[in-house]
Amino acid sequence: MARVVVDVMPKPEILDPQGQAVANALPRLGFDGITAVRQGKHFELEVADDVDDATLAKIAETFLANPVIEDWTVRRVEA
């Protein structure tokens, strides 16, 4: 078994109102110096050893992310 992490982020050109709301809240909470926040999703998959990279890419592209509005990355990490 391996752990696979899929990160999904809104594309740079897509408005991210949730990230903006977080960014706008930080100065109110006394945290200065944060100029921008983008909010995405982080998936951790427990994956059998015979699942290849192409399959993982397909899972990310067709299901975990919507490529119209989101970019994604897949990486294998130490469990």
Binding site: I14, L15, P17, Q18, A21, N66, V68, I69
Partner: peptide, 17 residues
């Protein structure tokens, strides 16, 4: 229908949340 690719584009969070 957008997720199913029967229509192009996507619907996202309202701009004022």
């Amino acid at each position: 229908l957008a997720e199913a690719h029967l229509l192009p584009g996507a619907l996202t969070r309202n701009h004022k949340l």
